[in-house]
Design a protein around this nucleic acid. Structure first.
Lengths: 307, 307
DNA sequence: GACCCTCTATCAAAAAAATTAATATCGGAA
DNA sequence: TTCCGATATTAATTTTTTTGATAGAGGGTC
């Protein structure tokens, strides 16, 4: 009478806020989802969702039931993980990373991971946080690493790393490579920034506005490789997380200086669907990613002390 | 792919130790159960049960998976309970009681319960503990009250009450109604006992053997009403839980004296299927049953102090 | 060892359920 | 009003589940 399909459908509708979106996510039709929800509501004898012209809103019962359903799906996933895949360390790992992470820490992490888990089929998607968040919620990624944020329905969040933001410019333009810098004391900046939908953009704007940083011109570039290339060959600067600059600490291409007075930190979090449990292989990759990133930061701190 | 039917089937097979029995319990055919288990094992990629000529034994994986499955079913039940039936206090309550409880505490409990929950459809089954245990495991009873025991697969146990055992004889045969008595000091007993499959029989035998109680003759009677009738009209005695004698404290029909040096206590526990959660109505009945029983015991203690 | 009894496995037919595609309907915004 | 974007409904289709019959495996018993 009650079925897992019904429960999965309900969870999807709740999280997506729409029957149509839930249908897409579940690889089903809107009609099927509609019927599942109806049967569920009938058999429970309670309305779970209020439909209006724009989409759906959960009722009080719906909210409560959703919590239980997520717990159930999660436990189901756990049960499976415990036996089938427990020791195997095989299967498929699909992760999403922002350019910040693909630039420098992905390669060494992959090296280590592939050596330990040779049978795992690894898939990495590079995208900005909004896209990654959607993919994770849809269950198309095991997890993703995105800038710290306020959470979303159906996702659980774990802090992966906290890193310092750097002012990056082409070689010899700033001088004093790797020593702290206070933006307020500088000439007005010509700065390359990501688009307004990007979480980091908001952080940068907030920082500049609240600490009296003068900006002469803004250039909006939503291409990380392009940003670096442009900065390297122009008088423009960018504010970037330190973790992506670890291969440029030698100063050959860029002058890199940590923001100071005050320092600006960015959080990066691991997000995963609450209804699921990380496979052992995915969990291993996540912990390796953290380790590599931490090592990266440690190396940079050592260099900064030298400088 | 994975379905609740599969999980329910597996839990049933695990608890019943047999495909055939599980099929009966689930109201399905042996063939269907067999296929569910096969699909489950296939999709998990692990054997859960080892089949031999006599029935089935779980593998290590099976044991682990069972635990998770029970938790999932329980949670599912809880989710439902939380919304649909939460405040209703309606539906059906099916309970099982031993004669010990039907004799004196059932009637006043029912009085109170029916007043509070007029819409509940109440069904009480009287039987000995073995039968009740089976019925609870099969899910045909919400809960049952049985003598404290070592537990069984798929059942969870809660202590409901601990009560003192009494020596019961016909009026004026023992004298000193309601005062403690030490069996060791008595002439050899002519005692009515239940059959060896009965949990209380074992307790009585153990007590007598280990405290030097002399027994002249045993009469095996598996009929509680019959036992009382026979004891009332003969020189035979019986050892019975105090809770069932509360209506005979006036001494009009029986001499009742608590065993002493040492006192003998019996535990009565509430058993329910682990995979399910008590409905609010059932939980209410259980707590009323406990209250009534406790009051019963308190009354008796007061009378004993008077005597 | 032959027999019997009980239990599980398998298979094809039948029944039930889920899924779909098409369409109706509803509610809000312009 | 009219349109747009959403959910509901329906009947046909596809898939899955369930069944009944039967085969096979493993222990006991004589």
């Amino acid at each position: 009478m009650r079925s897992l399909k019904q429960i999965r459908s309900f969870v999807a509708v709740f999280e997506e806020g729409s029957f149509t979106a839930a249908a897409q996510r579940e690889g089903a039709t809107q009609s099927g989802i509609s019927q599942h929800i109806r049967h569920l509501e009938e058999s429970l004898g309670a309305e779970l969702l209020v439909r209006d012209g724009r989409g759906v809103t959960p009722t009080v019962h719906g909210e409560r039931y959703y919590g239980e359903c997520v717990a159930i799906l999660r436990r189901l996933d756990l049960a499976e993980a415990e036996i089938g895949r427990a020791s195997a360390l095989g299967g498929e790992v699909r992760i999403g990373l922002m350019p910040t992470f693909t630039r420098a820490v992905l390669a060494p992490t992959l090296d280590r991971f592939i050596a330990v888990a040779p049978t795992v089929d690894m898939r990495v998607t590079e995208a900005y946080s909004g896209v990654l968040t959607d993919l994770v919620r849809k269950g198309e990624l095991d997890f993703a690493v995105v800038p710290g944020f306020q959470g979303a329905v159906g996702l659980s969040t774990t802090l992966l790393i906290r890193d310092r933001e750097m002012l990056v410019a082409s070689r010899n333009r700033l001088g004093q490579h790797l020593t702290p810098i206070c933006l307020k004391d500088m000439d007005p900046l010509k700065i390359v920034v990501p688009g307004p939908q990007n979480t980091r953009r908001r952080n940068i704007e907030t920082y500049c506005a609240s600490h009296g940083v003068a900006i002469e011109r803004r250039l909006q570039l939503d291409a990380m490789m392009g940003t670096l290339d442009f900065v390297a060959s122009s008088e423009w600067v960018a504010i970037l997380p330190g973790v992506m600059m670890v291969n440029d600490l030698d100063g050959a291409r860029f002058d890199i200086r940590p923001l100071d007075q005050p320092a600006l930190y960015s959080d990066f979090v691991l997000i995963e669907p609450t209804r699921r449990v990380l496979s052992p292989a995915a969990a291993l990759f996540a912990s390796m990613l953290r380790e590599t990133t931490e090592q990266t930061i440690t190396i940079r701190q050592a260099r900064m002390r030298e400088a």
